[in-house]
Design a protein around this nucleic acid. Structure first.
Lengths: 241, 241
DNA sequence: CGTGCGATTGATTGTCTTCAATAATGGTGG
DNA sequence: CCACCATTATTGAAGACAATCAATCGCACG
């Protein structure tokens, strides 16, 4: 099972063979999206649902002053815009951080699943609710709390989420984020992100170096940055590689 | 039509008579909840979906240091926990800010609607997606942006949302929030909220006094605090009373 | 071998917090 | 009806954290 969508869904709910087949069938129309290309643009009305199969992307808004706010990181297995069928106009954009492979799924196909494979539909529903829980958690951690916790928490979350889809090995993860992007997600300036990363490194919690995140001590990270992965509603969040 | 759930849904989607009947039927088992009582507690697995029919409530998390973070305001017509059927355990609590009337709806009844009245189900779906959009907007505005905008934006949002369910009159709204609660929602200290409210008052944008919010100049508020109600995905956001 | 982006560090400024004290407000019981 | 209490609002002063401005370094790429 090397399909990240299946891995993601398996982490969220138990699926039957038939459901796995149905999920797999969503990934037929795969497009390559180049780094820094919008997958979905703000203000558009996408005619397809998009699923990341490879690479990293973000949900973002551009503020009036030109700065950018990242509201979600999208990893392989994640839906970009399953809501677009109901809410026609995108109130945010989605952009590829790296070269990506993205499945384009006609909304009718999702509707059909809702009718024919209700428990798969429930897994989709579950996964969007978890996205919402993540959003709430960002609000809780980010909101004026200190930068050290915000960044530590973000790294912990990304590590756990990446592990679900098999992107980690030996306590580390290929993480193609610049400090500016981490800043856009945490509401910090790149300069300050740099200082915080230095502190995290010196505290022996996590090391970001050369596009690789290494979690030196996940338990310490949980303790020091108040990172408790419960909100991800997963059954598996032990400290496996 | 004095049922706030209907007003809310009508603002979100157009409903037929039959759908209105079905929605109305959800509001049979109504309970009174006293101010400061939990409607749903963190960590619990509610066996009913809850809909606010009267009064104000909030979604909140308690942080390790004892402080509280509000992640949503719930007004009449709002679902508290429609997700609870899928995500068993509540990762946050919901508490009544005022004495409330709350409808308790068995999840089966929601499921039945999903089957029998799909377009009503779609209205529910729409409404939860709007909640998610609000969450994203809070993240965007709150994240380290200045306090003046955060508070101004919050007041604007609450005013527009309250207007949808007929809670406003003459540019004002009965808003039973303490400055501490506004602070818990914006990530500010009550002391600073006080100073910001003073600035908003002096700038002639909004006045909070004796449990009443008065929007003196909604257009100025939009301009000065970057409040653009587009993210609420409503067709009606002109400046009616 | 320059060019450009990202990372790193320093110095200064500004906003918000914290601590502290006082004033208004609202509800309660005598 | 008033005194009393708890809660909320308001203001001041000092300190902390992150932003901003600015400069340098490192590295990949053409």
């Amino acid at each position: 099972m090397h399909n990240p969508l299946l891995k993601k869904l398996a982490s969220v709910d138990r699926l039957t063979e038939a459901e796995e087949q149905a999920a797999m069938a969503l990934c037929h129309d795969v497009h390559a999206i180049a780094r820094r290309k919008d997958i979905v643009s703000e203000g558009s009305s996408p005619d397809c649902i998009h699923i990341i199969l490879d690479g990293w992307a973000v949900r973002y808004n551009v503020l009036p002053d030109g700065s950018r706010r990242i509201t979600a990181f999208l990893l392989p297995g994640d839906f970009c815009d399953i809501h677009a069928t109901v809410l026609k106009i995108m109130d945010h954009g989605i952009i590829a951080l790296t070269d990506c492979k993205v499945a384009f799924v006609p909304p009718e196909q999702i509707d059909r699943i809702a009718g024919s494979t209700p428990s798969l539909a429930r897994a989709f529903w579950r996964s969007t609710l978890i996205d919402e829980a993540i959003l709430r958690r960002w609000l809780v951690k980010g909101g004026r709390g200190d930068a050290f916790e915000a960044v530590g928490h973000l790294l912990g979350e990304l590590y756990v989420r990446a592990r679900l889809v098999g992107l980690t090995s030996d306590h580390s993860l290929e993480m193609p984020l610049t400090q500016e992007e981490i800043g856009d997600a945490t509401g910090l300036t790149p300069v300050h992100v740099n200082r915080v990363l230095k502190r995290l490194r010196e505290a022996g919690l996590a090391t970001v170096k050369g596009g690789t995140l290494r979690i030196n001590d996940i338990n310490a990270l949980r303790r020091e940055s108040g990172f408790d992965p419960n909100y991800l509603h997963l059954s598996v969040y032990d400290s496996r590689p």
